[in-house]
Amino acid sequence: MTSEALIDYVKGLLGDKTKWADPEAGDNFLTVASEDWKNICQTLATDKKCSLTYLRNFTGTDYPEDDEIELTAHTFSYSEKHGLIIKTRISREAAVCDTLSKIWPAAIWYEREIFDLLGVSFNNHPDLRRILMPEDWVGHPLRKDYKQQETYRGIPTTRPA
């Protein structure tokens, strides 16, 4: 399916639940409300014509000025040879979202990474632990207002002059 055809098809499938980027932004992406996040992803992954069965990337970005964290899922369909970017925004304080690991098992590690670096917790995630930083690390490094701790288990985090 071509890019335009896919956009038209998804618009027809999801109705007014989606917000599309303006065409000048470059990539085709749709933004959905965080309540609909899991259901829409389920629909897009299982729909015969979309069949976006492969999650190639899943990441997050911190926007302190909007007080929101944006989650971005890059999906792809090997059978139909097309891809789609799905985004959602969640509140920065609560930072809770539904897990995608039931739809795409690859999301287990991506969500652990987002939890580790941005502090977003995912409901019903099978194994939500830190993946890159040590278990007892304080804070989430990719938040824009992150301040590194002075010492980690006695190791100074800055080099003495």
Partner: peptide, 19 residues
């Protein structure tokens, strides 16, 4: 020795002699 290229990173120890 010092953390080198990654000294400013949140994840990298700034030199093996710290521990």
């Amino acid at each position: 020795n010092t953390g080198g290229l990654f000294q400013e990173s949140y994840a990298v120890v700034n030199g093996g002699d710290l521990f």
